[in-house]
Simulated scan of single mutants.
Amino acid sequence: MLKIIRHSLCAAAVAGSAASAAAPMTLQDYLALDGRQPDRRIAYGAAPSQFVELFKPQGMGPFPVVVLIHGGCWTVQFGGIRQMRNMASDLAAQGIAVWNVEYRRHDEAGGGYPGMYQDVAQAVDLLKQEAQASQLDLGRVVAVGHSAGGHLAQWAASRHRLPSWSPAWVKDPLPIPSVISLGGLADLRLQASLIKSSCERDTGQLAGKPSAQRPDVFLDTSPAEMLPARIHTVLIHGEHDNVSPLSTGEAYAQRARAAGDTATVLMLPGGSHYDEVAATSPSWKIVSAEIRKALGLK
C-alpha cells in the first residue's frame, strides 16, 4: 500500500500553528509573489525566454543547488519565473544556490514540443559550465518544480532515460538524483483529462503530434513513461489543491514504485495549489524541510 505522509495540524512543530488559521492562497495571491533580484541572469539561447536566474548565498561555496522550474499551465498567461523568486530568495538566505529556469512555453515561438524540452535540457546542463565560477556543488542538486514545472522538473531528472531518437536527447545529461514536485502534472497520458480541465491544454500542445516515426508522443515527454529513472521523487500537494489534487501524486508514486523507483507523497494541511511555492505560507516549513533533506542539509 502506498504510504502518504499527512502533516497533521496537531504536529504544529512542522507546519506551525498558523497553518490552521491561514486561508489557502488564491491565484491572485500567487501572481503577487516576488522576491529579490537574482545575482546573475544567464542566457542559454537567443529567444527572450531562454535564460536562467542565479541566486547565490552569501559567503564562500561550494553551495548546494536547487534547479527551480516554474509552472503556469505551460503558458505565458500565468506568470512564472518572477513568482519563483519568492522561494529562491528564502533558499539563498538558507545557504542554498538557486538556478531559476525560464523556458519557451507552448504559446511562444519555438516552444511546445520539442523546443520547451530542449530549453529545459540546455538550461539544466548549463550548470556544468557555470559550477566552478559560481561555486556550485553539483554533487548536491535537487530539481524542484511547480505544477507544469513539476512535470518539467521530473522530466529533467529522468531525461537520461530518453530514447536516442528524441530531439531533446543529449549525451551525459547532468545527473539529478532527486526531484520535488509541487502540485505537479507529470503523467501526461494518465492525466490528460485533468490537464485539460485544470489548464485547458491538449496533449498536442505539450507532447507534439504523433507521426509514423513517433507514434507514441509520451515516450519522450512524460516522466511516467521514462520509469524507472533511478531517482527519488517527492510529490507534495496542498490539501485544497484543485488544480493537481493529492490523488495525482498518489497515482504517480504508485507507478514509480511499481517500476522500482522510490517515491514519497506529502500533503500540506490547509494548503492550496499556490501555498506550495510561497515562502510566506505556513506550508513553506514543510516544503523547505524537504528541499534541505534532499540536499543532505539539517
Rank of each mutant, 00 (worst) to 15 (best):
Q58N: 12
S222H: 13
S211Y: 07
A21Y: 08
Y44W: 12
A207C: 15
A253D: 04
A43K: 15
A97M: 13
P163R: 14
F218S: 08
L9F: 10
S49G: 11
G149C: 13
A279V: 01
V243S: 09
W284D: 04
A88L: 01
H160C: 03
S288V: 10
L138N: 02
S147D: 01
T262F: 07
V65L: 08
P163N: 08
T262A: 11
A143M: 02
A18E: 13
Q191L: 14
A12M: 08
A93F: 00
A157T: 01
I4S: 06
G139Q: 14
A121W: 00
D241G: 06
R105S: 03
A294S: 06
G45M: 01
M116Y: 02
R105V: 14
R85L: 07
H70C: 07
V14T: 10
P173I: 04
P282Y: 05
D34H: 13
Q205R: 11
A19R: 01
Q83M: 02
A131T: 13
H106I: 05
R161E: 07
E130M: 08
G139P: 02
V287I: 15
Y44Q: 11
L188E: 03
G149A: 03
V76G: 08
P177N: 01
R6Q: 10
H273E: 00
M84P: 09
A133I: 12
R159V: 04
Y252D: 13
R161W: 06
V265D: 08
K285V: 10
M1E: 12
T262G: 09
G80W: 04
S178D: 05
K209W: 04
K209S: 11
N242I: 09
D202M: 07
L235C: 03
E102P: 08
I291T: 02
S134Q: 14
E200I: 02
Q28N: 09
S247H: 07
A259H: 08
P223C: 10
R230T: 12
K128D: 00
R255A: 14
G59K: 05
L235F: 10
A186C: 11
C199S: 03
T203V: 13
N100H: 12
A192D: 10
N100E: 10
V66L: 03
V179D: 02
D107M: 06
V277G: 04
G111V: 11
F51L: 10
F51W: 08
V65I: 00
E276K: 07
S166I: 00
A21L: 15
F63I: 00
A294P: 05
G115Q: 02
A11K: 03
V76T: 15
L185M: 15
A259S: 10
A263V: 11
I286G: 04
S247A: 14
A157K: 03
V76C: 12
E102T: 04
L206G: 06
G260K: 08
A224Y: 05
L227N: 04
S166F: 01
M226K: 11
A143Y: 03
L31E: 05
Q129W: 14
L152I: 00
R189E: 13
D261P: 09
L9N: 14
Q77K: 14
